[in-house]
Design a protein around this nucleic acid. Structure first.
Lengths: 186, 186
DNA sequence: CTGATATTTTGACTTTTGTCAAGGTAGGGT
DNA sequence: ACCCTACCTTGACAAAAGTCAAAATATCAG
């Protein structure tokens, strides 16, 4: 089990809490296209991507729209469903062969009840995710298709290497054709 | 002091924690245009809007861009700055005469150290804010100016009543002119 | 290696939104 | 009431991005 990095950069966690949390983790060796969460079902797990990458998407008007990409070292789940315990509108799938760890909703709550420092870690992760999302929103406002693409290249170049044109285009809120033209003129 | 509603809908908080938190609150009777947080300064307070409304914005290319609106019953701060303790890029101001309560960063941390249930409340608030932000992003993808406006009307009609055309337009990522035309054709 | 299939690029054209400029309207202060 | 200043609306035109269709390229199973 390679769990290095899971607690990196995060506030001090007691040995005890750490072991309890790790004890609940389930390892998954996922092939490309493995569905971590499915639209229509309640999201039951918080995932940690040890190796690989994933994308979250939903379908609207027969269109596959990418919501987010997650790379190794990141946590991911269908947050809305995970928090509200209602069916997810998004599906999350691996973009390549990946090594995942997951903890169930119930066990995560159990950890919070037992160990205050874990709740704090989770809170700090949430904060980071919140400001990342906020930045993403803010900095794409009033930017052209080209500017949005250049920004992605600068901030998350790995995504461009791993995802298809279609996935990147919908993530950047433009059509495949527009993205193709943008790329050809760089 | 009217603090009703502050803990509404939020998990059980002990009488003790509640009192500690309330003890730290500072009441502010703010006029319209009161600057709750200023761009360039580190955000030092978490605000609760008891009455009134606020908007968060930043300036780019000489353009005033609205990031979010907050209504009574909501918490607000320049999250990025508040969390990272670095200067804020956004300014938050009241849209009308408002009754605010605020707690400083230091005192909030103090509360967390002392009362686990407050940390949990904060975590739950964060979760709600996260999914609200996510929804906002997700559902505006591949929507026309008109659709974005209609959605705002449906989901947060109060904003349309209280904010100016300029504020609403930049929030919806369109020009004032486009918004004006959209509104004239409903 | 080859053919079948999916993905990406390119071209022609349309629609949407933005820009600039000119009027119009509403509200505050004197 | 009147001016002054915001703010909002409208029109003409320009730019950006979308749509549809076809061609080019890449991927993969056999």
């Amino acid at each position: 089990m390679i769990k290095t990095g899971l607690f990196e950069n995060i506030a001090e966690v007691s040995e005890e809490a750490r072991n309890a949390f790790i004890g609940y983790l389930e390892e998954i060796d996922a092939e490309k296209g493995y569905k971590m969460e499915k639209a229509g079902e309640v999201s039951n797990y918080l995932f940690y991507i040890a190796q690989g990458s994933a994308r979250s998407f939903y379908i609207r008007d027969n269109r596959d729209i990418t919501v987010s990409f997650s790379l190794e070292g990141e946590f991911v789940t269908a947050m809305h469903s995970f928090i509200t315990r209602s069916p997810s509108y998004e599906t999350i799938e691996t973009l390549e062969k990946s090594l995942l760890y997951r903890i169930s909703y119930e066990n995560l709550q159990r950890c919070f009840q037992e160990f205050q420092d874990l709740e704090r870690v989770y809170r700090i992760i949430l904060e980071k995710y919140y400001i990342a999302l906020e930045e993403q929103m803010i900095f794409s406002k009033f930017k052209s298709a080209k500017e949005r693409y250049l920004e992605l290249m600068e901030k998350k170049p790995k995504i461009i290497q791993r995802a298809s044109v279609g996935h990147i285009a919908s993530f950047l809120d433009m059509t495949i054709e527009t993205l193709s033209r943008v790329r050809s003129k760089i």
